[in-house]
Design a protein around this nucleic acid. Structure first.
Lengths: 209, 209
DNA sequence: TGTACATCAGTGAACGCGCGTTCACTGATGTAC
DNA sequence: TGTACATCAGTGAACGCGCGTTCACTGATGTAC
């Protein structure tokens, strides 16, 4: 089934790349299975011939990597925006809660994309997305983590013994655990997300007096 | 390549079932990819003809389900044993720490098996392992969770306001998050597991005075 | 202004592969009489 | 004690499928002269 897609004009070939990633993302989220991202499946979805993809990606696994990279960019943007928006509210906002809420929302709204971001072991992803130890700021997702650290630091303020990185790590671990288990085991009698977030924030992050 | 496997005697056909699950488990853990559990791949590994599997499983996805069910049994056993062993030590043992340590060990020693237990969304597993809401004690993994609750309760003792189920849920979420992220993002500068466990236990579980 | 040519963006057909599953079967083991 | 037969446990060949990838190609778009 050939669609009405017309060839891009010269110099705009890169536009197809974006369409490919978008189609792959849609397939992932709709089927719930990253194995649905096949070369031919993506090509069908975009409305092009399968070999056309090779103009933009070396192989099929590179498509998934692009999907993941995209997702990390969006997560970073969502957290950043939550922090900004909350800080701007006169007097009322709690940036840390806003950031954590945005994290959980992201995971809940696009569960399969979220799963692929953190659910695959990166050594076995076939390609070297991230295998060597390296500082946190060079990792995929580093920007998102930095935002979390900043919002934790703002929340703890001048609290003695406050170590924002340690606190943020513990908090990340808990947020991810909750998001991931809620998606994986929906039948478990979970507290509702707001209540769970209360518990985790109260216990894991010191509050400025 | 036919191996020296000889046909089971009458009434012992069920033995092959165990061999199939063991082979599938080995394939999963060795390749790091549940897609390596194919009908033909498992059959090769066991040393039988591919159709022989249909005597024991309806289809290929049932094999993975059996691997997961097995893994939950082992996890429950490991946690239970950790609690018992620790409680038996005269005066010294901390059952809660022992149980949590056993959980993290299980996840670290068999990372891919662990990932498949909790990393797939159960609705999309193709079969109804667990989709309907139901009480926690009817879930796959219920036994393991019960052990965790018991060890939390023992640790909190007569602490006022102690709610062992809530505490255990928060702790589970954190343990899973840590185990899962450590496997997924090994390059992140994690604290070592014992230190992380200290932090999480201190903050998430009230201690009996 | 015209025209030959290079490049860009993508196509269509074909390949070999491993897969899940079905089918009719085989040979050993036990059992009824 | 013998023997016909049922059942159990597993086999071998074949099917059709979707897949990743390669290959030579086509037609539109821009550019040098």
């Amino acid at each position: 089934v050939t669609q009405g897609r017309s060839q891009n004009r010269r110099g705009e070939g890169a536009r197809l790349r974006g369409d490919i990633v978008a189609a792959a993302t849609a397939l992932l989220e709709e089927t719930g299975n990253e194995d649905a991202i096949t070369l031919r499946g993506v090509a069908r979805r975009v409305g092009i011939a399968a070999p056309s993809i090779y103009g933009h990606f070396d192989d099929v696994s590179s498509i998934l990597m692009a999907v993941v990279a995209d997702a990390f960019d969006e997560l970073s943007a969502a957290l950043h925006q939550a922090m900004e928006a909350s800080g701007a509210v006169a007097g009322g906002g709690d940036p840390l809660r806003a950031v954590c809420g945005a994290y959980l929302d992201f995971a809940r709204d696009q569960p399969h994309r979220y799963r692929v971001m953190f659910g695959r072991h990166r050594e076995s992803a076939g390609s070297a997305l991230m295998t060597e130890p390296r500082p946190a700021n060079q990792l995929l997702g580093a920007e998102a983590f930095t935002t979390l650290v900043a919002s934790v630091a703002a929340h703890s303020g001048a609290q003695p013994e406050a170590d924002a990185t340690t606190d943020a790590t513990a908090l990340w671990v808990a947020l991810h655990g909750f998001a991931s288990l809620q998606a994986a085991v929906p039948a478990f009698p979970w507290p509702d997300p707001a209540a769970m977030l209360n518990i985790l924030l109260e216990r894991l992050v010191p509050t400025e007096p």
